[in-house]
């Protein structure tokens, strides 16, 4: 399972970087999104995959069973998803305003402040 996920993460990173290197400003946003998702999956995989062992304390016990899935990576991913959701919303508005103000969606033409 880890191997499959590792390939998926690699593919998502590659797709994200490829989309970011395109000239269209919308593809830049899509690329950033893909990279964010790849990172979330990376945390998930690096945190260790344990199937069908919820970290729940059985009635009468004080600690969860010896083998249980670590819930912390999920908590981290959840936080990261919420943050990236907010950032994505901002990014879309920014891109829209930039398009309205500058009049182009070509990143090669957004060079007014470079030199």
């Amino acid at each position: 399972m880890e191997t499959v996920l590792a390939f998926l993460i690699g593919f998502l990173y590659a797709a994200g970087v490829y989309a970011m290197l395109r000239r269209s400003i919308i593809k830049l946003v899509i690329g950033l999104m893909l990279m964010g998702q790849a990172t979330n999956l990376l945390i998930f995989t690096a945190g260790g995959l344990t199937r069908a062992q919820a970290p729940l304390v059985e009635p009468g016990q004080t600690i969860p069973p010896a083998i249980h899935a670590d819930p912390l990576p999920e908590a981290l991913i959840l936080t990261a998803i919420v943050i990236s959701f907010g950032v994505l919303a901002f990014m879309l508005v920014l891109v829209h305003r930039a398009y309205q103000t500058v009049g182009t969606d070509d990143l090669d033409k957004l060079k007014g402040t470079d030199s």
Partner: peptide, 10 residues
């Protein structure tokens, strides 16, 4: 929302 601000911000 000035033009150069948008370009820099992206």
């Amino acid at each position: 929302g000035e033009r150069k601000q948008m370009e820099g911000a992206v």
